[in-house]
């Protein structure tokens, strides 16, 4: 009995991860985190850098904000302050992580350093922390929701980065080059992601 319960818990985690990454893709289904995506997706390697940083930050801040919400905001009856509190928590957390990375891993700092401040004001991160509250998740599930959401964003931006690298060589109409064609690409890709939407319901 206990075993099957465990299995279903793990199954729910996998489900949460997959649905957050694909059916509810934060970039392609919710259109969040668009500004940094448009800015950074010119190349695959910078896209990867930002994407990895986003995965890390969404997962940790989803967990952190879950705790802040459950153990500070609810007991104080201040749920209506969740948006602004989450922003402060995310900003402080990113600053802190930047410092730790800078001190202890210059290599990682070199690769991710300039992306971390960009993330502070990334709406995808705040969005994932806020969406998490709509579902009856526990702490571990909240973490996996954040992980999946971040992974979805990572996936979307490297796909876009790859397409943009290819498209650089093609003869585009002048007015469409740059952000114009990127927005069209994102639109077509999000149509493709609509295909995932019926797959899982949680």
């Amino acid at each position: 009995m206990v075993g099957s319960e465990n299995l279903s818990f793990i199954g729910s985690l996998a489900l949460i991860f997959i649905s957050a990454a694909f059916t509810d893709n934060v970039l392609l289904a919710r259109f969040l985190g668009m500004c940094s995506c448009l800015g950074v997706s010119k190349k695959v390697d910078t896209s990867t850098g930002l994407g990895v940083a986003v995965i890390f930050v969404t997962a940790s801040t989803a967990a952190l904000n879950f705790l802040v919400y459950k153990y500070i905001l609810i007991p104080l009856g201040l749920e209506y302050l969740r948006l602004i509190t989450f922003i402060i928590v995310i900003a402080a957390f990113v600053q802190f992580v930047e410092m730790v990375v800078e001190r202890f891993s210059p290599k990682l700092y070199n690769a991710l350093g300039i992306f971390l401040p960009l993330i502070t004001v990334n709406c995808a991160i705040l969005g994932i922390s806020l969406f998490m509250l709509n579902k009856p998740y526990n702490f571990v599930q909240a973490f996996f929701f954040g992980l999946g959401g971040g992974f979805g964003w990572f996936l979307a931006i490297i796909l876009i980065g790859g397409i943009r690298e290819k498209i650089k060589e093609s003869a585009l109409p002048k007015g469409l080059a740059g952000p114009g064609i990127t927005l069209i690409i994102i639109g077509i890709m999000s149509l493709a992601f609509v295909g995932f939407s019926g797959m899982i319901k949680i």
Binding site: L76, G77, L78, L81, I84, T85, I88, A92, F96
Partner: peptide
Amino acid sequence: ATSVIFLSSTGVVLSVIL
């Protein structure tokens, strides 16, 4: 009042930590 107190104290605590 509680909102203001809560937000400013969170801000102060986090800045001090940072």
